[in-house]
Amino acid sequence: MTGLDRRDAVAALLAERGDLLVVTGLGSPAYDACAAGDHPRTYYLWAAMGGAVPMGLGLALARPEDPVLVLTGDGELLMGLGALATAGAKRPANLSIVVLDNRRYGETGMQESHTARGIDLVGVADACRFAWTQRVSTMDDVHALAPRLQARSGLGLALLEVQADDPPRVLPTRDGHWLKRRMREALGVA
């Protein structure tokens, strides 16, 4: 099976996360982030498919001194593809998007997504004026990416080519109110 191990990759990205604020898309990226270690600066979506990028954008605009990471999958991003244009129109320097691209809709039975059919999400981000984009297929590149997510060095998108597997689920809480209060308290805005 080719591609990165998604759990290893996300664990490497979040191992020394510093002040990073994380919004995950629903499904596997939420489980990956939870498996890497639950954190008060992480908000997991359990629905709202297509909402991860705009939620990260609103958070990044509100907190320009904090780096913000949207951690999502190819299917979730595809449902809200227009949000890449919205983010590209604003270009906050502190927003990064990591797409865990397994070319599948994992939650529903691993049906092939558009990226399995040749659609290039890195190319879309380039066309949307992202300051940097990157296609990542080795753990060396994952380790090099980790500090970049904290650098507030421009609106960016990294696409991680991950295996189309289904690791054991590590479920975060589904209490969206609690997750909200937890992050606001961590930021001192509650």
């Binding site: 908000y43 709202a48 297509g50 990028v53 990260g56 609103g58 958070l59 990044a60 907190r63 001192g188």
Partner: peptide, 11 residues
Amino acid sequence: IALLAGAWLGG
């Protein structure tokens, strides 16, 4: 809707 949820998370 998602953008303003993110804004509120950030205060």
